[in-house]
Design a protein around this nucleic acid. Sequence first.
RNA 1: GGAGAGGUAGCGCAGUCCGGCCUAACGCGCCCGCUUGGAAAGCGGGUAUACCGCAAGGUAUCGUGGGUUCGAAUCCCACCCUCUCCGCCA
Length: 422
Amino acid sequence: MLDLNFIREQPEVLRKALTDRQMDSSVVDNVLSLDTERRALLVKVETLKAQRNSVSKEISQTKDAALKQEKILAMRTVGDEIAALDESTRSVEEKLQALLASIPNIPDPSTPVGIDESENVVLRTEGEIPVLDFTPLPHWELGPKLGIIDFDRGVKLTGSRFYVLNGAGARLQRALIAWMLDLHSRQGYEERYTPFMVKAETLYSAGQLPKFVDNLYHDIEEDLWMVPTAEVPLTGMYRDEVLEEASLPQRFTAYTPCFRREKMSAGRDVRGIKRGHQFDKVEMYIYCKPEESMRELEKMLADGEETCKLLGLPYRVKRLCTGDLGFNSVITYDLEVWAAGCGEWLEVSSVSNVGDFQARRANIKYKPEDGSRNRLVHTLNGSGLGMPRTMIAVLENNQQADGSIRVPEVLRPWMGGIEIIR
RNA sequence: GGAGAGGUAGCGCAGUCCGGCCUAACGCGCCCGCUUGGAAAGCGGGUAUACCGCAAGGUAUCGUGGGUUCGAAUCCCACCCUCUCCGCCA
């Protein structure tokens, strides 16, 4: 959520941001007029309340019964007026909040302006794309052939876009998770194990509600929501808290499954395990001071890149353009790894600085050591890589002519002696 | 799920029966000053957040949401959370 004062003072900056994001900027005028209306109402109602408070005090001290009765009657009228004005204020505020909650963050000025993902900018490509002397299979053929991915039984259990991992396949995913958590710990992130179900308020804090309600699984009975990413509990963790300045930056890593309805039609983009309704992910998350957030963003990106490098995966770094930038984000880098079998770059990580956007919604501040007033923290999030797609790249890039798969060196300690999946 | 006890400003607590001197006491912690060679102790002062207002100042918040009232931490209703015991259970 943006600062209302900021919108009031620099509406043109927001208008430009919305236009750059390929969105309608007329919402700005609605915000401004509601804000004006709200303040006018506040002045009125607060004057009346001040009057009521002071007269009520007088009433308690008035001895003369007739005079007392007179004052009570007068205040009865004032009370009715206050009730009516309170109601109008509440309704205006509700509208204003709903509007504010629907406005995305301001992209950093350095963000390339573009219509959609086709205008994202590739910053660099690292690692060698493997040259194979045979035709590599895509994982949706490789997996069933090796007996490590069972699509049919996933569908049988739950429905389309679900699968079962078998034996070395399940173990490989578990190895990736354990290895990544350990790696991020070494990189300075503290591990957290969080609930996988949260309340609506927590999703609101992270900016997932109300906007992305269609993409979430919801238990009506208990009114709990399945997390779409660990970013949600990691943001909500400090909701309504004030952190000590000396404790910042605080860096966390967490493994969670992620649940997304993704009501998109089947097709090329969802083939295999690329885009399931349930997938595992290891997340990186940072709380820091505003002046630190750009530096932390670069650190997080480097940490994500290290993950790819150590796995031996060729990858490229993309800078998202205004048209593709996420709702919360100021700057986003995407990491894409090359998958030899499907022959495409797969997005495995999105590393974003969201500035104070989530912190304002979640009300997360820190107490400056110089005694000045509490300030909002900045938050950053990044995937320490999404599992299925990382698995895809590991499987497809390390396949050998006989259809077996070499397990990357770094994962072997977690593979119980399995070096080749065959 | 059942019974009981609780939720008050950073923490601990008082206040709630019986509405208005609550502008929320008191203690601890923390900050500033005095004192000191320096410190402790002692003494004095300060110590929530948000919003409105150029300002003076005002408004709101005692778990949350409603209600009664001129006036609610206090009375009424609903809900949430924590603790103890019981039940159930990996």
